[in-house]
Each structure stands twice: as structure tokens, then as C-alpha cells.
Amino acid sequence: MSRVVVCGSLNMDVVVQSARRPATGETLLGATVSFLPGGKGLNQAVAAARLGAPTAMIGAVGNDAFGNGLRSFLASEDIDATGVREIDGPATGVALIQVAGKDNAITVASGANHRFTRRMIRHAPHRGEVWLAQFEISVAETEAILKRAKAAGARTVLNLAPYVAHSDRLMSHVDVAVLNEIELAQSTGTRLQARSSMRDLTAAAQKLRAKGAGTVIATLGARGAVVVTGEAAKVVPAYKASVVDTTGAGDCFVGALAARLLGGASPVEAARFAVAAASCSVEKLGAAPAMPMARDVAARLARA
């Protein structure tokens, strides 16, 4: 059976909400705290699964309460978590997320995520699958995993987030690269700003394609996304949303994109669906718990 296989991070998100962020040295009272499943890998797996794609998660957690909780959460989302390995020693990854108004700031303690290796993978990739990775586990392991998946005939998707320096050869193992404008600037050495023109964004994306990536998709927040292929660059506009928390919106986009690619959609069609899914996700608190269901995205598309 074809499926989305997500290789990546699993974290417990400690979300602290306050009216504003404290200044350096300041103690700010009156905040609220929530403990929510997260990590780019887990978020993307949940997004794909909720949108109807058979999904498996591969990664590492610590031998602790957070690790047990994350695996239980995956099971409750009907995600195959047999590939999530428990490691003695390092703690499960934790992300401290400060939410102030509509913005967030994130600090990650990667823990067990940095101990994950390709040798922990029990199941070989297969033709017809979509293998998805990010940069919250070792770049060297990510490259090896994507190389093996592509050689087996699987479609490979890499979310270059958070940006980490990597070899140019990595792109030769990537069918679809997804990144925001900041990561696009970092990965190509290009000067880009929040309001950079589509011409400049496209030119930067073509630099990644020149390194081997088949398709490059730049996510642009409220501006939507731009999809750059060998034939053309297509702008996908954003959808209006009542923003509560932007945490995980990028992960929702990537997971939704993978789910649509698995179903046979073109990159542009998949990106249009993913933009709509991401607009739904920002209307709820948290990352993984805020991922929309297929009916939510269908309703958003119908109103467009």
C-alpha cells in the first residue's frame, strides 16, 4: 500500500501564551501553559494522516513520559509509529514556544532526535511511496535516507527547515524541496526580504533546481506560495484566515502537500491544497492538534 513516510523529529511542545514577550531579565506573570505534541516530523505526519493519506512516522524519542505520550498520540491519529525508536539516555525532544499575540518564538532542545540514524529504520522504501524529511535530525542521515528512498522509486520531499548547512549533492536526491523565503535566502546565498518580488524568489528557487531539486516550492505566509518547476513558476495565492496561532502552519503545508502528491496531484495542485490547509491550521492553538481534517480544507476551498 502506498503511503507517506515521515522521517523526522518528535517533540513535546511547551506552549506559553502571554500578552507580550518579556524583555531581557524581566519576569512576566499572567501567562498560560499547554503541553502539546509537536516536532516538525510529527506535525507533518499528523497533517498528512488527517487529510486521508496512509502515514508512517520514523524517528526517535527518549525513555520518558513525553516519549510515551507522543507515541500514544500518533496511535490515536492512526499513524503507524512502529518506526519510532525509544532511546535510553537523551530525553525526548522539547520545544519551548512563546506565543504573544499572533506571533511566536521557538527554542528547541532536540534530545533524542539527534541520536536518530538510518540504521534504526526497519522498513525499506518502496516505489509509489512519498518519503518526507526535514532538518531537525542529522543532515547526513537525512541525505542517506532520501538517497535510498529515491533509488527505490519513492517520491522524495525535503522541507529545508530549520535551515542547516548541507552539501549541494543533497538536492540531487530531492524531488520536491519546500522552504520559506528566509530559508530560501540562506540556502542560495540570495538577498531576499519579506516583500521580495516573485521574480527574485523564482530566480533563487532556480538556483536550488540547478543543484538537482526537481521542484522548488517557496512558502510565503500571507502571500501564499510560489511553485517553480522546469517549465514555469506558478504563484498560489493565500486564503483568508482568522489567525490564532501560526505555530505549525509550515508543517501543515508540507504534510498536506505530501498527502496530495501521494494521491497523484501535480506540485501546483498539491500546493494549492496545502495553502488552504495551512490557512485552516492557524485558526487553532498548537501545532499537531491544530492540523485540519479533509472536510475543513474542502470547505475552505469551496469558499474561495
Rank of each mutant, 00 (worst) to 15 (best):
V236H: 02
G214C: 11
L192T: 02
Y239G: 02
L179A: 14
A238L: 09
D175M: 11
V227F: 09
L170I: 11
G230H: 01
T202L: 02
E181D: 07
G230N: 08
A204F: 14
S167A: 10
H173V: 01
L208F: 13
V226L: 11
H173A: 15
V176C: 12
A203W: 00
L220I: 05
R209C: 08
A218Q: 05
V227K: 11
L170Q: 03
V178S: 12
V216Y: 06
E181I: 00
N180Y: 08
V174I: 06
V243F: 12
A194N: 12
V244S: 04
T219I: 03
K211W: 02
V244P: 00
V236D: 03
P237H: 10
Q186G: 00
V243G: 09
R209L: 12
A241C: 09
K234C: 00
A210T: 12
S167P: 03
V226Y: 07
S242V: 08
A222S: 15
M198V: 10
T202P: 03
A194T: 11
M171F: 15
M171D: 05
Q186W: 00
G212Y: 06
V227Q: 15
T229L: 07
A213C: 03
Y239R: 09
V227L: 09
T229Q: 02
Q186E: 09
R199Q: 13
A165L: 05
K211T: 03
T246V: 15
D245R: 02
T247F: 09
T190N: 01
S242T: 10
S187C: 09
G230R: 07
P237T: 06
H173W: 13
M198F: 14
M198S: 12
S172P: 00
R195S: 14
V226W: 02
G212R: 07
R195Y: 11
L179N: 13
Q193F: 04
A225G: 05
V235F: 01
R169T: 11
E231A: 14
A233N: 03
A222K: 01
I182W: 00
V244H: 08
V227R: 06
E231R: 15
Q193W: 01
L184A: 07
K234P: 00
V243H: 09
V243N: 13
A194Y: 05
H173C: 04
R223K: 09
Q193P: 00
A225C: 05
H166W: 00
R223Q: 11
V236P: 06
H173D: 14
V235G: 00
A185T: 05
Q206R: 15
H173G: 06
R191K: 13
Y239D: 04
V236T: 07
A165V: 12
G189S: 11
L201C: 12
L184E: 01
A203C: 07
D168I: 02
G230C: 03
D245Y: 11
A177S: 13
L201Q: 05
G214V: 10
L192G: 02
V236N: 08
A204E: 14
A241K: 10
K234E: 12
G221N: 04
